[in-house]
């Protein structure tokens, strides 16, 4: 009896000692009630983006001139637009567009910025000065203005929106990764790796990069909200998706002429953008509290 108790307690100690960063993350994540709900909403949104075209009750492009500007009802949950197209179906298709554009642009920006930030922080010297001065030049334009300028050059379209948003994200990521790299460069394990003859590439990507991941993940989650807002603003201005595309920004842009008579045409895509950006911002806040306790918001 005594023996089994002792065995049990020793296994408990063993279990407690076993540390897993992922388990720790999930444990802390569960405490973030708002962020948990927001992440569930994002999961739902991703599912909708994937299966949306299969569950949409109507063809999002097909006009129905007998059902123009109908308010929300049994036939059309979110009503119809000026061409009689079902707004709910268009929103489902739009989820795929919004998420693809924002994820792609933020990830491209993050990859570019991370590589530049690592190189800049790790090697220092002229390379650091070159990269940082170039990002200063990019910072000389407000974000959305830089995106507008890039789209003006490349021409309107969703692909160019992705390029524009990823380009304006690069300098912010580069600065963030550079400052984490400068910190990580001075640590003992990097010193050890260097003295063992590890290559620059190995030190940067295997030793320093994991150190920057925490703040990088937080920043990515926050930038996705910004990217959705930027992309929808560009579509609203007529520089992004073409008007017939079921893009949330483009839907809002077309619907504004009917604001006085059919408010739902503007309300529905607006709510979709708002809730999505809100969810990403709440998740970003939650991730920051869990992963980046230094900047924890009380």
């Amino acid at each position: 009896m005594e023996l089994s108790k002792a065995v049990n307690s020793s296994t408990t100690i063993k279990k407690e000692k076993k540390y897993s960063p992922l388990r720790e993350l999930l444990k802390n994540w569960k405490k973030q009630k708002n962020a948990l709900w927001a992440s569930l909403f994002i999961l739902l949104l991703i599912t909708v983006a994937i299966i949306g075209p299969f569950i949409a009750p109507y063809d999002p492009y097909k006009p129905d001139y007998n059902a123009m500007l109908q308010g929300p009802g049994i036939d059309h949950i979110a009503g119809t637009d000026e061409y009689g197209r079902d707004i709910f179906s268009r929103l489902l298709f739009g989820a795929r567009i919004s998420l693809t554009v924002s994820f792609l642009s933020v990830f491209l920006g993050a990859i570019g910025g991370t590589i530049l930030g690592l190189l800049s922080g790790y090697f220092g010297g002229w390379l650091d000065r070159l990269i940082m001065r170039s990002s200063d030049v990019m910072f000389a334009f407000p974000d959305i203005l830089l995106a507008i300028a890039i789209v003006a050059i490349l021409g309107p379209g969703l692909t160019n929106v992705v390029i524009a948003v990823s380009i304006f994200s690069i300098p912010s990521f580069a600065r963030l990764v550079r400052s984490s790299t400068l910190e990580a460069k001075e640590t003992v394990f990097v010193e050890a790796a260097k003295s063992m003859g590890a290559s620059h590439f190995r030190i940067m990507f295997q030793h320093i990069l994991p150190e920057t991941l925490g703040s990088l993940i937080v920043f990515i989650s926050m930038r996705i909200g910004t990217a959705i807002l930027a992309a929808s603003s560009l579509s609203f201005l007529g520089l992004g998706a073409s008007p017939e595309t079921p893009d949330w920004g483009a839907m809002l842009s077309l619907g504004r002429d009917y604001l006085g008579t059919s408010t739902h045409v503007v309300m529905m895509p607006g709510i979709a953008i708002f809730l999505t950006v809100l969810a990403f911002n709440i998740v970003g806040d939650g991730l920051r509290d869990v992963l980046d306790p230094k900047t924890k918001n009380e």
């Binding site: 909200g225 809002l252 408010t263 309300m267 607006g270 953008i273 708002f274 950006v277 809100l278 911002n281």
Partner: peptide, 18 residues
């Protein structure tokens, strides 16, 4: 505050106009 950050400016403008 968190809602204000997430609101698309053009949408807020249209609602205020309405």
């Amino acid at each position: 505050a968190v809602s204000g950050i997430s609101l698309p400016g053009f949408w807020l403008g249209l609602i205020l106009i309405q």
